[in-house]
Design a protein around this nucleic acid. Structure first.
Lengths: 228, 228
DNA sequence: CTACCTCTTAGCGTATACACTAACTCGCCA
DNA sequence: TGGCGAGTTAGTGTATACGCTAAGAGGTAG
């Protein structure tokens, strides 16, 4: 694996998990030293993060990890609605029903509310579901747009993770979507996706309101402390 | 302006205009020499093209300009429908009506069928319309997804350009969309966008069928000649 | 004559040196 | 004492050198 890929993967993971808080300056030399690569692959990794929108240039000389606020979550879900409702509709028209029947069964058997291990398995299942959707839609531009959105979504996902009631409901919602796609019912799949996204967004925003900025460095900008 | 930006802008333009045909190998050293920059910015430019999907790696050592077939046009329009119908709906809910009233008037006055100069002016107007949509939706993730799609769309656009009847109809369709947004009628805006995209796609596919691969190097892959 | 192996070469990935620019600090002048 | 200007420094942008890998060509053996 290339050094630039390792650097990118590691920086991406650290941003998604919040280890690198929004506002953190991503200096080439600093990150290169920290990640054990030279400036060239470090530069490429930071450039890819910037292109993906996870970092942005404050000035020609300073790149920082992008902020991620409740507004960003709302914006993200606006795009998710646009893309995922349609991908569900398209998948219902084009997919192999057996694949989504199997997924529906897997959702029926999932119990992410039973602790960390099963929650991890559930997120694996969702990744499998997303991959099946991409394959059914068979549209590289769609897949690409969704990948970008999912990359950002990972920053929000952990916020709702420890909400057991929400996880339980999420399972049922995914199951319905999978069943609708398997049945070839595009309208139901799209509407069920809409409902799912509405509920997921509401849960995340509730979590955010209950644990406002400060308990988690989610919207905090360390730089702004120095520029009053 | 940075050398890597100039290199990227030039390569992007050449790909969009078809000067660099699909399948053309993008070698670092070759492009660096041709564009008058060193390997580092050339490499960054090619990397950005790859990330955007306009080029892709055939093997770890050879990157080529991506193909762009009729299927790609169809896929692109699937995503356009998903994104633009919703952006029109959102813009109708959030926009400043005056902006879109002015745009509707500009569309009413546009006559792209009257030659090259007015056609260029029309594409400028469409760019202005797109920018107004982005500003109204006020969602950076939406804007980003649409930018990617528009970048690819540029490769298809020129195919329908010289179709005067289509240009005339396109003006009327845009005018209706702008008026619907100005009136705050999200449903009409979305449906009018759907109709517009349907007609635009049909026109492009007709052009493609009339001028199949060979008259334009659009789907041709020079490399495949050497690998029977 | 064909197939496989080896050697050569071209091109990429990474590291690093050089240059330029912007920002910060220190000193001077008002 | 405050503001402006010059010098220094840190960090990016670009160029280039080095090493490695993969692909192709040529030779030899079956």
């Amino acid at each position: 694996m290339r050094a630039s890929d390792r650097a990118y993967a590691r920086l991406l993971d650290e941003i998604q998990r919040g280890v690198l808080a929004p506002g953190t300056v991503l200096g080439e030399v600093e990150q290169a030293a920290r990640l054990g690569v030279s400036r060239t692959p470090a530069r490429e990794a930071i450039g890819r993060l910037t292109a993906a929108g996870l970092a942005h240039q404050l000035s020609p000389r300073v790149t920082v990890v992008s902020a991620f606020s409740a507004d960003d979550v709302r914006s993200l879900f606006e795009v998710r609605r646009a893309l995922e409702e349609n991908s569900a509709r398209l998948a219902a028209a084009k997919s192999n029903p057996a694949v989504f029947s199997e997924l529906a069964a897997a959702f029926a058997a999932a119990h992410p509310e039973n602790g960390e291990v099963e929650a991890d398995a559930y997120y694996e299942l969702i990744a499998r579901f997303d991959a099946a959707l991409d394959e059914a839609v068979a549209n590289p531009y769609f897949t690409n747009a969704l990948r970008t959105i999912r990359t950002h979504l990972a920053r929000a996902r952990r916020l709702a993770r420890d909400n057991r009631a929400r996880l339980r409901a999420s399972v049922a919602e995914h199951r319905l979507i999978a069943e609708a796609i398997a049945a070839g019912d595009g309208e139901l799949a799209a509407h069920a996706t809409h409902v799912h996204l509405h509920n997921a967004l509401a849960a995340i925003l509730t979590s955010l309101a209950a644990a406002p900025a400060g308990s988690e460095p989610l919207t905090q900008d360390p730089l702004s402390e120095g520029t009053p």
